[in-house]
């Protein structure tokens, strides 16, 4: 199963992923046109800093046992049995914010202007998610776990720090 992985050592907190995500999920899918849209483009991924000021990219983790599925009162959230992705049917979402209330990672964002919850869908229509394509330092990786591990081990500088 393909997943999004983050090599935090490479992340510079430039937030290119946030912009790419917002544009990809806009109506026009174009940076400049999307800025004029109403409601404006919003990112579903975010880059924060932890208490040690280490950069910390955050997005939906497509949990094994997602709290958001139990919490959804409109049957809008489900787990794809094949891909394992936790997907929101935006047409069914009523904006009750139950999923926002239970997500332990705080990665489901209430879009008050649209009355729906926003969450990462790993850009299912694209070959690779927009954030991964936009990352200038290749900190974001989309693929199988074993390939990500391999990639990390190939890098001498992180070898000692990575527990694989």
């Amino acid at each position: 199963m393909k997943r999004l992985f983050v090599d935090v050592e490479r992340c510079l907190s430039c937030r290119s992923c946030e912009i790419a995500c917002a544009v990809e999920h806009s109506q026009s899918k174009d940076l400049f046109s999307s800025l004029k849209e109403e409601p404006g483009p919003r990112s579903r991924t975010k880059v924060e800093r932890d208490t040690k000021l280490q950069t910390f990219p955050l997005q939906c983790r497509h949990c094994e046992e997602p709290y958001c599925i139990d919490a959804c009162i409109s049957g809008a959230v489900s787990k794809d049995p094949e891909t394992g992705l936790v997907i929101l049917d935006e047409d069914k979402c009523v904006g009750c914010w139950m999923c926002v209330m239970v997500c332990p990672f705080g990665v489901i964002r209430p879009a008050k202007e649209k009355k729906i919850a926003l969450r990462c869908d790993l850009c299912q229509d694209n070959e690779i998610p927009a954030c991964v394509a936009a990352c200038p330092t290749k900190a974001l990786f989309f693929g199988e776990l074993k390939d990500f591990k391999k990639k990390l081990l190939e890098r001498k500088d992180t070898k000692s720090k990575v527990k694989v």
């Binding site: 992985f5 090599d7 935090v8 949990c63 094994e64 046992e65 990672f105 694989v164």
Partner: peptide, 13 residues
Amino acid sequence: ETVSLQGDLVKMA
């Protein structure tokens, strides 16, 4: 247990 590997690996490096 409730988190997928996607989450685990964020903290790996």
